[in-house]
Design a protein around this nucleic acid. Sequence first.
DNA 1: TACGATAGTAAACGTGGTTGACCAAATAGT
DNA 2: ACTATTTGGTCAACCACGTTTACTATCGTA
Lengths: 158, 158
Amino acid sequence: MATADPARPGFALPLLLLAGFRTLIDDLHAELAREGHPELRPLHGFVLQAVGADGTTATELGQRLGISKQAAGKTVDRLVAVGYLERADDPSDARRRLVRVTPRGADGLRRSAEIFDRLRERWTETLGPDRVDAMEDDLLTMASANWFRLDVPGWFGG
Amino acid sequence: MATADPARPGFALPLLLLAGFRTLIDDLHAELAREGHPELRPLHGFVLQAVGADGTTATELGQRLGISKQAAGKTVDRLVAVGYLERADDPSDARRRLVRVTPRGADGLRRSAEIFDRLRERWTETLGPDRVDAMEDDLLTMASANWFRLDVPGWFGG
DNA sequence: TACGATAGTAAACGTGGTTGACCAAATAGT
DNA sequence: ACTATTTGGTCAACCACGTTTACTATCGTA
């Protein structure tokens, strides 16, 4: 077993991962604001992504995001209030309330994907494509269990 | 300029960085709980680190963490309540209230550093030391501006 | 038809953040 | 020395996001 390298303290790695995440998300939202979506918050893009093109329900959204159905419902309320999601009745089941992305939400989603692609290109231009590929592969190896768990505020705060 | 690789969509990179961060922090706290610190939350370790061995004040802590002095004060209150921090008067300035790490807090801090070192070793055993070094170097290149900004819940939620 | 499972909502609460207002103590200026 | 400003801390009100508990309404089935 290797010995801890004093020049590479273990606590730096999580901070660097967080800083990388934060940098990408901040850059994304700076560009989104320039392109007409200043209200979109970091969380919202992931929620829109989780709703998807086909729509879903609050309960299913909660399962996808790893949060309770109540929390998912409140988040949907906020996104509805700013015009990125809409609710509709399900004609085949009066209990369900379909959640759908509005045209404005779809625009934000499409722009987010494009901006993320451009940001990744910036990383490959600076670091080289192989390094970025390696980073993604290695993170997938070490962290696949936490893929798409978005309850960040509650998780981090406690 | 490179073209977006459909096999490497840009949105995966931030999710993987977040998943990596989350994996390390979850592993840390699982081990901390086993070693007698089950109350320590993800945020708390970073706050203890920011207080440091010499102690500080709530206002200065807020500046270090990138949050308001009021938010820093409330966080200190909570850590005082669980025994990781203590307050003391400053004999040289009656306005200031020194915040210091308690022995229990110091124990948690020391264990956190050791656990982070062990977790990094696990990564180097799986991925190879060069790959982990490269990941750290590359993240430092791309994200140095966001080193140690810990206002995660407020930033992410909005 | 009656019952259990499911979708959604409401209420109360905890954590972490913000701004605005305020007080007390230290410091600077005349 | 006496104001005036700055600084450290706290309080109150509020927002975002999450939780658990409790409840209603509807669906599907025995």
